[in-house]
């Protein structure tokens, strides 16, 4: 049994109220600045808002936000506002986030965030687009091989640093299993790409430099065709050291 009067403690705010939207924007900004894997997310819908009084001052916005994956990797310095939402035909991924945002003296500060993400159902995707490839498991043999082959192709063609795989983020296996498409993040090492003999002896640079690649491996009789396009981002400080809206500490799960 709930304690008496507990239902009267918070006030309900319209989800599309400018105050709710302002809190949601601060929350999404915080989330994207503190991601270090996967893709940046965009706000899709404000699901629920409760505003609790906070002693001695301020209010806490308890919010549930629906988000959508964008095409920008978390390590991509592009502001999230400039990132495109991944369309449904690319097998969209949605996020469900619970935020607690403090409003004090007119300023919003994120206190905590917890997000889960999940891809759209295969059935829904196939109903809407029967020929669209669905996301493949990232540990699938073909997927792992495609990422290795694409990264190797990139390192063979570059005159700069040798890049290591950071994470495989997305993959699908196309028509008749002959074409495997992968997206992955990579990081520069202290080895030169054209001189590396043992990649296990290469170390990440102190000033981290990341890149993001899209690669395709197509099986043709007795051989394979590899194509890869990579973007190398300017050197940056690690995301966990990057400045975050004050004050810390917020909980990020």
């Amino acid at each position: 049994v709930s304690p008496p009067m507990i239902g009267l403690l918070y006030r309900e705010v319209n989800c599309d109220d400018p105050e709710s939207e302002q809190a949601a924007m601060v929350a999404m900004d915080y989330l994207n600045k503190n991601l270090f894997r996967g893709y940046k997310h965009a706000l899709n819908r404000i699901e629920k808002v409760k505003v609790w009084p906070r002693r001695p001052f301020g209010e806490v916005f308890e919010m549930e936000l629906d988000t959508l994956e964008t095409t920008c990797h978390a390590l991509d310095p592009t502001p999230a506002a400039n990132c495109s939402v991944r369309p449904l035909v690319e097998h969209a991924v949605e996020g469900d986030c619970d935020f607690r945002v403090l409003k004090q003296a007119g300023q919003f500060t994120v206190l905590s965030v917890k997000c889960d993400s999940s891809p759209d159902s295969r059935e829904d995707l196939k109903k809407m687009c029967p020929d669209c490839p669905v996301l493949a498991p990232l540990n699938h043999t073909k997927v792992v091989h495609a990422a290795d082959a694409a990264l190797k192709a990139f390192n063979t063609q570059t005159n700069g640093s040798y890049f290591q795989l950071v994470e495989l983020t997305r993959a699908n296996i196309g028509y008749l299993s002959r074409t495997t498409y992968v997206e992955f993040a990579m990081a520069a090492t202290d080895c030169a790409a054209q001189e590396v003999t043992d990649p296990t002896k290469c170390n990440l640079l102190a000033e981290k430099q990341y890149g993001f690649c899209k690669g395709t491996v197509t099986e043709i009789p007795r051989q394979e065709k590899v194509s890869v396009t990579c973007t190398v981002f300017p050197p940056q400080t690690q995301p966990d050291n990057s400045p975050v809206a004050s004050p810390p500490p917020a909980t990020l799960l």
Binding site: N14, D16, A42, I46, L68, L88, A92, E94
Partner: peptide, 27 residues
């Protein structure tokens, strides 16, 4: 006692405070 004469009330828009609008699409 004072009784308000019956006045026809126009049906106003139904307010759905939450959830809010989709900014992109429904998944």
């Amino acid at each position: 006692s004072v009784v308000q004469p019956s006045v026809p009330v126009a049906a106003g828009p139904v307010v759905h405070p939450c959830p809010g609008r989709y900014r992109h699409f429904k998944v």
